[in-house]
Nucleic acid binder design. Structure first.
Lengths: 207, 207
DNA sequence: AGTTACTAGTGGTCAGACCACCAATAACTC
DNA sequence: GAGTTATTGGTGGTCTGACCACTAGTAACT
């Protein structure tokens, strides 16, 4: 593994892998050479090859199956965004921004879901709200999780989930009990334009 | 290094590093423990620690200086994007989530900024739009970067920046030229309620 | 005081040894 | 013959120990 200028072996391995994939026209799902074979062919230590593969795995470009092999993977950006977000969240004191941003995403989810919410969905949401076993926080989570799933925007939901988990460690909040029912009312009355104002007016309850 | 559910050691190391960073309130530029020290403290092999650090280095979260140590780094995604782009361009069925989510954040930024936009700000934004030196894409970026800064929500801006960089690698888009001026018009006329519809009606231009 | 040589600590890399896991095959049982 | 079980080879997962190269601080020298 010799490279022009001061490049670490594992970075060289990555470039060689890219070339290999391109050359053999590999698609997601296809198998990559084994670590030992790569090590031998690229004249690099197996540990260096692993450093490269682990890095690619971390950002979701490659999938590893114990005892089977390493496979090219259908890339999903949210995996990387998720990882980076978690670092970004910890790096700065943006705890204050967290709650606010999260609320924005919940609002957008509510609006996005609007066109896909049917009568049974509303009934289902009511069931969530009326569950005796769960507390207000759990209800909030379940309620919006349902809405996020309706949006069919996986990235949006991932980011929200992440923020939700972080917010629990910082400052939990929820809406007034009546808020959720007001939203459901808007759904059943097909009143899209009132969703935004509803969120704006709602004062959060911290606990 | 023992973890609850089937987690690779290097993934555990990353999580421990995140905890360490948060606990000691480390900021970009600060030094991380040496590989050998981490190895000992986390009871993991040095090679596993390296797999974790190399992965973090690859995506630019950490900087390594031979003979010195490993340092936390201000995140710059250039290398990540560059790396991912070659893989991503093979598949375009996931770009929708990204583009859509990004647009949502831009809309919210525009609305959040509303209350903080003054006449000089509008003038400044016009200057950005009329800059001859920059292309439409750069203008879009600069324009919204200005708005995001006005929101004073660092988290929101960080996430947007992240998505913006990723979207460039996947599918660049911008709005119609007239869109930006329409938004400025709403600002100067203090017409908050029309911002949302403006975004909804706007058709993106892909290139 | 300034220069040089040394040294301890760090990352960079490799080789080898196990282990755990999986899948295909072989051997066995009925 | 069909179904089960044991074997085996290949794979990733991990650790250890050994070098090398580099850096910065220190000691020794001039």
């Amino acid at each position: 593994m010799s490279f022009s200028i001061e490049q670490k072996v594992y970075q060289g391995v990555i470039k060689e892998l890219q070339r290999y994939i391109e050359k053999n026209n590999l698609n997601p799902g296809d198998k990559l050479p084994s670590e030992r074979e790569l090590s031998e062919r690229l004249k690099a230590g197996r540990s260096s090859v692993r450093e490269a593969l682990r890095a690619l795995e971390l950002i979701g470009l490659v999938e590893t199956r114990h005892g089977e092999g390493t496979y090219l993977r259908e890339y999903r950006s949210f995996q990387t965004v998720e990882l980076l977000s978690s670092f970004i969240l910890r790096q700065n004191n943006m705890k204050d921004d967290l709650t606010f941003t999260k609320k924005i995403m919940e609002k957008e989810a509510a609006k996005l879901a609007f066109g896909r919410i049917s009568a049974p969905d509303i009934q289902e949401l009511k069931t969530i709200l009326e569950a005796n076993s769960s507390d207000a926080l759990t209800k909030h989570r379940s309620f919006f999780k349902y809405l996020f799933e309706k949006t069919e925007n996986l990235l949006l939901m991932k980011i929200w989930t992440l923020m939700d988990e972080f917010s629990h460690a910082v400052c939990v909040y929820r809406f007034e009990e009546s808020f959720y029912y007001s939203l459901l009312k808007l759904y059943s009355e097909r009143d899209y334009s009132s969703i935004d104002p509803l969120f704006s007016s709602e004062v959060q309850v911290s606990s």
